[in-house]
Amino acid sequence: MKNILSLLLLVFIVVSCKNETKTTEVTETENAEVAYASFGDKIESDNAIKATEMAERFQSMQVGDSVSTKIVGKVNEVCQAKGCWMRVDLGNDEEVMVKFKDYGFFMPKNIAGKEVIMNGHAYVSEVSVDEQRHYAEDAGKSEEEIAAITEPKRTYSFMADGVLLIEE
Results as ranks from 00 to 15, higher is better:
residue 1 M to L: 10
residue 2 K to H: 04
residue 3 N to Y: 13
residue 4 I to V: 14
residue 5 L to Y: 09
residue 7 L to V: 07
residue 8 L to E: 12
residue 8 L to I: 12
residue 12 F to T: 13
residue 14 V to T: 11
residue 17 C to T: 10
residue 20 E to V: 13
residue 20 E to A: 10
residue 21 T to P: 00
residue 23 T to S: 15
residue 32 A to I: 13
residue 36 Y to G: 04
residue 41 D to E: 15
residue 44 E to M: 11
residue 45 S to Y: 04
residue 47 N to H: 13
residue 51 A to E: 02
residue 55 A to C: 06
residue 56 E to W: 04
residue 56 E to D: 15
residue 64 G to P: 13
residue 66 S to V: 01
residue 66 S to C: 04
residue 68 S to K: 06
residue 75 V to F: 01
residue 77 E to R: 06
residue 77 E to D: 08
residue 78 V to Q: 00
residue 80 Q to N: 10
residue 81 A to H: 09
residue 81 A to C: 05
residue 82 K to C: 03
residue 85 W to M: 02
residue 87 R to F: 08
residue 87 R to E: 08
residue 89 D to W: 07
residue 93 D to E: 14
residue 95 E to L: 09
residue 99 K to V: 15
residue 102 D to M: 08
residue 102 D to P: 00
residue 108 P to Q: 01
residue 109 K to V: 11
residue 109 K to M: 11
residue 110 N to A: 09
residue 115 E to P: 00
residue 116 V to A: 05
residue 116 V to N: 01
residue 120 G to K: 01
residue 121 H to P: 01
residue 125 S to R: 03
residue 126 E to S: 10
residue 127 V to W: 07
residue 128 S to G: 15
residue 129 V to W: 13
residue 138 D to K: 07
residue 138 D to Y: 09
residue 138 D to P: 00
residue 140 G to Q: 07
residue 140 G to F: 11
residue 140 G to I: 05
residue 147 A to S: 15
residue 151 E to I: 10
residue 152 P to S: 12
residue 154 R to Y: 08
residue 160 A to G: 14
residue 162 G to I: 05
residue 166 I to E: 11
